[in-house]
């Protein structure tokens, strides 16, 4: 058959029509897709110690990565079945909107704009943070008020940029933000002395001070927090089933801490006399079914990464190089904000 130009054109047309008819990929299908591909695609940062960073052996570690691992364990039965997609601050939302990642677990602040107008849903809070400032000690700055007129390095695409403005405006002070589009560039500029202060979430500041600086004592993190930064995983809009799974996996980890269930004792506690523990670990009632999962979903998640307290201590707290205090991230029963709705 000779392919006349006309026929070619018709073929192209048919192709276009087929593309047209192809169903838009979203809504309600995430769990199926995850099961089918046998992996959770998890968006993480490009490298922020304590939250998501590659360790010396090439493994992703950190609080945000453990959320993804728990998710993979709950859904697929294997915490290792995660595909990591590193994303910088600016490009983190597009892949989620476009369905290239299943969950964005990357020190991302829950705000109304993001929740309501950017095609995503925040599932839970995994870390209550606040924005702070880091300065070189030799500048003798000890509180934010002294930063009047200062040049402040900040990464674009963050809530940080706007908080900075709000705070300084509220205080009637002027700040000159120096905005960089990449994390690396912003760090480089600050450490070269271009700015008198660097600002982002204080947990990140602690991580930066610990890892990126020759002598951490040369830098100070100012005492003031200027914003609320509730960080947590987000999922795509329009898939309530998957949204519920991510939300409840996080809550299961918090509930486990409340109930004293740990990575080590989860196995033996399966036969616990406490009905709440039983429900969590799938000893008797099948709570997983309601989520479209099986009975042992939470058990597997806890076995994989431990309860929330363990995750915190390992990555950010006492057992980590950062040694951050639990602070607001303590359980509500101990004066903190971590509170899981009941699993029942």
């Amino acid at each position: 058959m000779k392919l006349s130009p006309l026929r070619c054109a018709l073929l192209v047309l048919a192709g276009a029509a087929a593309g047209f008819a192809a169903p838009a990929a979203h809504a309600g299908k995430t769990l199926d897709a995850v099961r089918q591909h046998g992996r959770v695609v998890c968006g993480v940062s490009t490298g922020l110690p304590g939250f998501s960073a590659v360790d010396s052996k090439g493994n992703w570690v950190g609080l945000d990565t453990d959320v993804c691992r728990a998710l993979a364990a709950a859904v697929l039965g294997d915490a290792g079945k995660v595909k990591w997609t590193p994303l910088n601050s600016q490009q983190r939302f597009t892949p989620l909107q476009a369905g290239e990642i299943d969950v964005l677990s990357r020190n991302t602040t829950w705000t109304l704009t993001r929740d309501a107008s950017m095609g995503l849903h925040f599932a839970a809070v995994t870390y209550y943070d606040g924005q702070g400032f880091m300065v070189a000690k030799k500048s003798k700055v000890t509180n934010v008020k002294q930063l009047k007129g200062a040049e402040i390095c900040v990464q674009s695409g963050t809530t940080t940029e706007k908080n900075l403005t709000d705070y300084f405006r509220a205080q009637g002070m002027k700040a000159k933000p120096v905005v960089f589009e990449s994390y690396e560039a912003s760090l480089k500029a600050f450490f070269s002395g271009r700015c008198q202060a660097y600002t982002t979430d204080v947990s990140s500041l602690a991580a930066i001070r610990d890892k990126e600086v020759k002598n951490p004592d040369d830098y100070a993190i100012l005492p003031e927090l200027i914003s609320k930064e509730p960080l947590g995983p987000a999922v795509r809009r329009g898939d309530d089933e998957w949204f519920a799974i991510v939300k409840w996996v996080v809550y299961a980890l918090i509930e486990a801490e409340e109930l004293g269930v740990t990575q080590a004792n989860a196995e033996s506690l399966k036969r616990s006399a406490n009905p709440a523990v039983q429900r969590l670990l799938g000893g008797a009632e099948d709570m997983g079914r309601l989520l479209g999962l099986d009975k042992e979903w939470a058990y597997r998640a806890i076995r994989a990464v431990g309860n929330y307290g363990e995750i915190f201590d390992r990555n950010l707290g006492a057992n980590s190089p950062l040694k951050l205090p639990r602070g607001s991230n303590q359980l509500w029963t101990k004066g903190g904000l971590m509170y899981a709705p009941p699993i029942r």
Binding site: G47, A185, K188, F191, V213, K214
Partner: peptide, 8 residues
């Protein structure tokens, strides 16, 4: 950038 910015 990757190689140098993150290494004090």
């Amino acid at each position: 950038q990757l190689a140098l910015a993150g290494d004090a």
